[in-house]
Structures are given as C-alpha cells and as structure tokens.
Design a binder for these strands. Structure first.
Lengths: 245, 245
DNA sequence: CAAATAGTGTCTCTGAGACAGTATGAG
DNA sequence: CTCATACTGTCTCAGAGACACTATTTG
C-alpha cells in the first residue's frame, strides 16, 4: 500500500433538531487554526481500527453527551476536494443525525462550546425558498462555516427535508411521547410551510404503524387535551406525505 | 497531519445498464491478489490532487472507453470497514453510473476484461423480491464478488430502483432517441414487474418535460410504428411513478 | 385477412385538500 | 360564558389502475 497516496479520513456530523419552531444544527467553535473561532460541524478523525458508522456514533456521543436512544443516524455523503482542508488531503464522510430537542444543554462536549444554531441564520435570506442556500463555501462572500461545512450542512438539510416526505423520520425529532400537533410542528418547521391540522391528523392516524396511541393525554395546555403517541413500527410511508406546492 | 492515521482512498463504480431485458452491471476480473480471478467492481485509487467526482469520471472513462454523453453519475455511499481489504485500511467512495446499452463491447478497458453481468446472477435467487439480495459479503456463503462489492452493488441497485420512481433517470438507460415502449422496458426490468402499456404511455406523455417528441417514428418493427422521443428537461417527477404493490 | 404493437377514451376507486361542525379543556 | 385547540365528517378534485376500443404496421 505504500505506493498509494495517503489520505486522512474524518467523519463530520450534521446534527439537526427542531427547537422553538426553528430547525437548528449543532455547531462547535473551532479552538485552533485553521478557521480559528469559526463555527464548524462537529467531527473528528476516524481511528485506525474503527468502522465509519462507529466513528460517527462515537463523535455523536462525545458531542451531545449521550447516544440518544431515539436518535437517527445515517450516512450522508463524502467530500474530498483536494483544497477543502489547508492542512492536507482530508476526505470526510458526513453523517446526518436527527434528534429530539434536548431539554438540557449539550453536555459532555469536548469541543470549545457546542451550541444549537438556527439553520436559517447560516443560509442567507429566506429559509425554505426551494434551492440551495445563498451562502455556501467557495467564491463570492465568505462562508459562515469553516471548510466546506456550509455545503455539507445544506446537503444534510435537504436530505432531511426529502426523507420526512416518504419515511416516518419526522418522529425522530420528537420526544418518546408526543402529540400529533408536535409532529406537525416538525413538518412545518422543516418544510417552512403551514399544514392543515385536520388533514394532517387524518393522514398520520390513518397511516398504519406511523404512530401508536399511548392512551394518555396532555394536560395543562391551552385548548382540548391531545392524545399522546409513540413512534410506530413503520419506517416507510405509503403513500408519501406530500409537501404543498 | 502526520499524527493522524493514514488511509488509502479509492472510488468504486456500480455501472448499470439494461440489455436484453436484464439489469446488468459492469464487472472486471481481478488480475492480481487478493481475490485473484474473482469479479469485482471497476475502480481505483484516487490520485493525490484529484477530487472524488473527477476520479469517478476518470475511472468510468477508463473502463467503458468513453465518458458517454448521456451517462448519469452520482455518489452512492462510502465504505470503510477496517477488514474490507486485506491489504490495509482502504476507504472507498462508491459512485453509481447509469448507461444506455452500449452497442459495441466495452472498449479501451485497462482491466483484465470488463464485462456486463446480469445482476440477478449475482444476487441469489429471485431478483425483485423486495429486500436485499440473498448473497452479500459477510457470514454464510462466499460472495460472488471481491471485497464488500456485493453489498455495494446491492446498494447501487436499490438506489436505482428507488430513484427511477421520482426522477426521470430511467431515460439514462435509453439511447438518445427512444420509444415509450423502450422506456417502459427499463422500468419493467429494474422493478421486475410488468406495467400496463396504456397507463404507462399516458403517465409519461402527460408529465411535462419528461420526454420531448422528436417527430419521427420507428419503422420495420412489428405492429404500429411508435413515436420517437428525447429526454426532456424535467429531472423530478410530480407526482412520482408508482411501483406496483 | 390475422397478429401485433401504438395510442385514446372512459370508468372506478383512493387519497389529498378545503373546510363545516363537534368535543373538551383553560380562563 | 369565550377562546383555543383536538378531532370528525363531508365534499370535490386529481390521478392511478383496469380495460374497451381504435390506429397502423408486418406477414
């Protein structure tokens, strides 16, 4: 193998949650050059005897304090532009994680301050205007994120938007027990569009296996109490949840 | 960077086409150990100053003799199990290529004989039975493909199956000018199910931008001559083409 | 002519969207 | 009581599937 070029391999994480009706990403502040002080995706080098998914799980645990039981983690894509890291030739394998809004601040982080940042603030102008964000790495205007992380984040957001359409993944943003309205809020936040509460309710409860009723209701809220649900067994939606035109 | 583990990075290609009503993958015979003489996906090491997509395009050109103008190429996923290559720590970035059936045999190949192999022959038993193929790398039964390439191929086939549902990518398997029946054959082959020719025709021609009529017809075939079409501008299908239950 | 394939018309059923109306809590 | 939110019922329209029918070629 010595005759072949040597690369460093990292995993980077696009960790998304919905809090306060905004789609937020978990970002760290870089504690060393390059991009000292800038926001960046959490991530790190893959260890010599570690598989890629293991590295992603490890980094997620290190950054969020725990491997949250209801977290969803999937490979997103890989990025290997020769110029993406000034320190050398680094190929990164990005993973996408979807988490419920954590009640406690992110604990156990070994990075210089991990924080939730609204995605809209990182993607110039209107969020939900259809295409790629106005601000990505590269020519024209400095990115708000280190390396090519703006591009990776945009790809992760786009993946999340697309996947809640035909999977039950939106429930990964909700706590273990949730109401239909909470689930609807996830869709509305990620898609950036309002949905009819009544049709949404019918669609969710009419799709076998999407959610299972827990038998109890909320209390102390305004309006009629809502039934609580758990995530169901189904992972694919047939037919899909349609994003309004 | 010297303090971080060194990896080799390769690109591997899942090159698919439809020929003779079968979904086929382009495979090479390995000319050296390990897995000497076995089938494997075409691919090779990424060069020191080469971006990942460039490496994929280069390998595709080397293996198929030309960067076919109507070829579709997209990143599939990355694989980095520490044990996947006995020679050392190799992370591979897999790409998926969709090509029309090439009239000439694969030319210009620098590998020890590239050939089209029906995917069904590599995936134990019935093709189109819904899940993963019976034969993947790992425990139980030796794979017909080197390394973890059976797994990568299966992922590529699954991606192709899913994407022709909501994109116009099926046309990438057709020559520049084609009939609706040829396009239908692509769907039927990849999904392994028969489709109603009349409803299919209505769906395709009724979707703006999927295909553009070329004005001419086939001749010399049995039955009524068919209109010829070109690929249209649309890449996403709304609503999607539904796979029969 | 028959056989084969291309393409159209039409019916039915499912499901999405709009939205009236009812149920049940807090204040 | 009012207000807010949860939930149900019903109408309409778009589109998928089934399939009768017509069109145009070869043999």
């Amino acid at each position: 193998m010595a005759e072949y070029p040597a690369f460093a391999v990292t995993v980077d994480l696009v960790v998304l949650t919905v809090r306060d009706r905004r789609l937020c990403a978990l970002l760290i502040r870089r504690g060393e050059p390059p991009y000292l002080g800038d926001h960046a995706l959490p991530g790190g080098f893959v260890r010599p005897d570690e598989d890629l998914p293991d590295a992603a799980v490890r980094e997620l645990a290190e950054e969020t304090g725990l491997a949250h039981p209801s977290a969803h983690l999937e490979q997103l894509a890989s990025y290997g532009d020769p110029g993406r890291d000034p320190r050398g030739r680094v190929v990164t394998v990005a993973y996408l994680a979807l988490l419920p809004d954590l009640p406690a601040p992110v604990a156990g982080s070994d990075a210089a301050g991990a924080e939730w940042v609204p995605v809209a603030r990182l993607q110039g102008g209107r969020y939900g205007n259809g295409g790629r964000p106005a601000v990505t790495a590269g020519a024209g205007g400095r990115s708000l994120l280190a390396f090519d992380h703006a591009r990776i984040l945009a790809d992760g957001v786009e993946r999340a938007r697309a996947k809640i359409e035909y999977t039950s993944l939106a429930a990964a943003f909700c706590p273990a027990e949730f109401t239909i309205a909470q689930l609807r809020e996830v869709y509305e936040t990620i898609w950036g569009v309002p949905l009819d509460p009544r049709n949404f309710h019918r669609k969710i409860t009419g799709t076998p296996g999407f959610v299972e009723p827990v038998g109890r209701s909320t209390t102390g809220e305004r309006g009629r109490p809502a039934q609580l649900y758990r995530r169901g067994d189904a992972s694919l939606l047939h037919p899909a949840m349609l994003r309004p035109a």
